[in-house]
């Protein structure tokens, strides 16, 4: 077809003076159907959000607010509780349970570091060295999830049992002497010691470290290793200057996903430790379910929450990534 297009360009009808057309005149000429459709489109996200956000507001935020109020109430189960702005509960709770607090933070911090230390080689292996085994190994990392958390933790009781082969071996090669001297085990036992609890925490939250590490390592282009090698970097320097910095988002996500649940966990402490290894979660649970001292339970969980949020905020700021949010 050879028809030449006919046109007069950029001439808004009815506004001969300005070739640009004024905004007001332009929107006035918009058909009402379009304006209605645009208004309806603006409502869509709110409708989609409604149920999910309402659920979280009612069953997550409201309980938190309520928790805050409970923590400053006094009273008894029989007489009922009233808000009396009794902030002393906080002080009393901290005073009574500070060892459990410190222990919780220390154990979960050590477990997080251990998870990173042993999880990184695994994630690295899956990402760069597993080849066609990659999917199988990934499956092996995820599959333990499907056996209950509690059952697997109980299996550690078997593994670390006093007369079991693991403890006998460690005893035989005098490893336990060293750990006893360090104060993380006592005598011939591993069970009911800090070592057992930290081992359990490390084990339980390891997949939460490996998966985000793997995700960020997988995105690292293998050719970068070659490029670094080409530019005179030794394998170790390549790792330190190229691979590790690129995997930092995974490190941040992994450490948070490990540290946060570990700090509130009490199952490992209860099953693998003794009363000397109790963590703050155990205290909250027993105050709530057994002692029925709700204000103390509320104050303790509020303190825990505040500490965790503070640590997370500072950590995310320092790490310079807010991708998680």
């Amino acid at each position: 077809m050879s028809g030449t297009a006919t046109a007069s360009v950029n001439r808004p009808p009815g506004s001969p003076g300005s070739p640009n057309g004024s905004g007001a005149a332009a929107s006035a000429s918009l058909p009402p159907e379009l304006a209605r459709a645009a208004r309806r489109r603006r409502l869509v996200p709110y409708l989609l959000l409604l149920a999910g956000v309402a659920w979280l507001l009612v069953f997550f935020v409201a309980p938190m607010v309520y928790q805050a109020s409970t923590s400053v109430q006094t009273g008894s189960l029989e007489a009922g509780f009233k808000v009396t702005w009794h902030f002393a509960t906080y002080w009393d709770a901290l005073h009574a349970y500070w060892p459990q607090f410190v222990r919780s933070l220390a154990y979960s911090a050590i477990a997080t570091v251990l998870c990173l230390a042993i999880g990184y080689p695994l994630a690295y292996t899956i990402a760069f060295r597993a080849g066609r085994w990659r999917n199988v190994v990934m499956m092996l990392v995820i599959a333990p999830f499907f056996t209950s958390f509690l059952i697997r933790t109980l299996a550690w009781e078997t593994i670390l049992a006093d007369q079991g082969p693991v403890v006998s071996f460690l005893n035989h090669v005098h490893v336990l002497d060293v750990t006893s001297w360090l104060g993380v085990t006592s005598g011939d036992r591993v069970m009911a010691t800090p070592l057992a609890v930290v081992c359990g925490l490390t084990y339980n939250f390891l997949p939460f470290m490996v998966l985000p590490l793997y995700t960020s390592l997988e995105r690292v282009d293998g050719r970068l290793h070659e490029a670094a090698g080409d530019l005179y970097a030794t394998p170790f320097t390549t790792f330190r200057k190229v691979t590790f910095p690129l995997s930092l988002p995974g490190v941040v996500a992994g450490t948070l996903l490990t540290f946060i649940p570990a700090s509130g966990d009490y199952i490992n402490a209860e099953l693998l430790g003794s009363t000397n290894q109790k963590m703050v979660g155990s205290v909250i649970q027993s105050q709530f379910l057994r002692v029925l001292d709700y204000p103390t339970a509320a104050a303790l969980s509020f303190i825990l929450m505040a500490v965790i949020l503070a640590i997370v905020t500072v950590y995310i700021r320092r790490a310079g990534t807010e991708e998680l949010v």
């Binding site: 997550f60 409201a62 928790q67 946060i260 509320a298 969980s301 509020f302 949020l309």
Partner: peptide, 22 residues
């Protein structure tokens, strides 16, 4: 986004105890 992120950054024991109290 923040509201969605918070439950994941909250120790389970805190969430459980708060909801139980409510």
């Amino acid at each position: 986004n923040m509201l969605i992120f918070l439950p994941m950054a909250m120790p389970e024991v805190v969430m459980g105890a708060s909801l139980g109290t409510l």
